[in-house]
Design a protein around this nucleic acid. Structure first.
Length: 240
DNA sequence: GTCCAGTAGC
DNA sequence: GCTACTGGAC
């Protein structure tokens, strides 16, 4: 195969991709980045998994947080790590016991998968969770969101995340049209292009906190919001 | 009672 | 694109 197969093609405009590219007004990206990071410094939550970059701890917290709220996760996060302080110790434990320890967080497929991730990490990766997206996605129980969370929170990479908080925030601020959930391709791309180089960790944490505490699903706190000068949804109308 | 969650599997 | 999973918020 020739390496020059494209040499005669005329320069193409970027292919039209109806939902996969969001136009950003001049300066909007930088303003959003700066304001979000500043807001986070002042108002970010102090959560236990933000005091560590141990990939195992981050993994446990993210799997717990997949469908469970922060307040219910915090005590169980401590208990779980006390009982299973490392991939090795989790891998060595019987699944039935791990599921008991998990109780009452629910969605009990999660502790099974967490256990299997621990076994595989020990068996195939020498007890070190890989930082590669493809490899992370190959584990059952790690999807695109959790892979991004691990890469940014444990390995400090500028990897994008997209959960329902982030979908809501980015859709409101930058798009404000159509159904948020039908625009995931565009929103993933946005989540990626918005990350300030080298600041994936803080930026992603900030996005999550902002969605959880200001740009909330119901009755967002628009009056406190630093994005209101350029938010496409401001002023939010709850009656819509 | 209704809605909402990330992932896997369809 | 839809659904099961399980429990909480409202």
């Amino acid at each position: 195969m020739s390496t020059k197969s494209r040499v005669h093609k005329s320069p193409r405009r970027k292919k039209k991709s109806p939902q996969s590219s969001v136009p950003l007004a001049r300066g909007q990206k930088q303003r959003f980045q700066n304001r979000l990071l500043k807001w986070y410094k002042e108002h970010g939550r102090d959560l236990p998994w933000r005091k560590t970059s141990d990939p195992y701890h981050i993994l446990v917290s993210e799997v717990m947080l997949q469908q469970t709220q922060v307040d219910r996760v915090i005590p169980k996060y401590h208990e779980f790590l006390e009982r299973y302080p490392s991939f090795e110790q989790l891998a060595d434990a019987p699944v039935a016991e791990v599921k008991q320890t998990w109780y009452p967080l629910g969605y009990n497929i999660r502790p099974e998968r967490l256990h299997s991730i621990a076994c595989e990490t020990v068996a195939r990766y020498g007890g070190q969770l890989p930082n590669d997206a493809e490899e992370l996605l190959s584990f059952k129980g790690i999807g695109r969101y959790t892979a991004g969370a691990i890469r940014s929170f444990a390995f400090n990479e500028d990897a994008p995340i997209l959960d329902t908080n982030v979908i809501r925030v980015l859709h409101r601020v930058f798009i404000a049209q159509g159904e948020p959930k039908s625009q995931k391709a565009a929103l993933w791309e946005l989540s990626e292009t918005l990350i300030p180089r080298g600041k994936g960790y803080d930026f992603n944490q900030a996005l999550m906190d902002f969605g959880a505490t200001v740009c909330t699903a119901r009755d967002p706190y628009c009056l406190l919001c630093p994005m209101k000068p350029f938010c496409k949804t401001y002023p939010f109308d709850a009656g819509k």
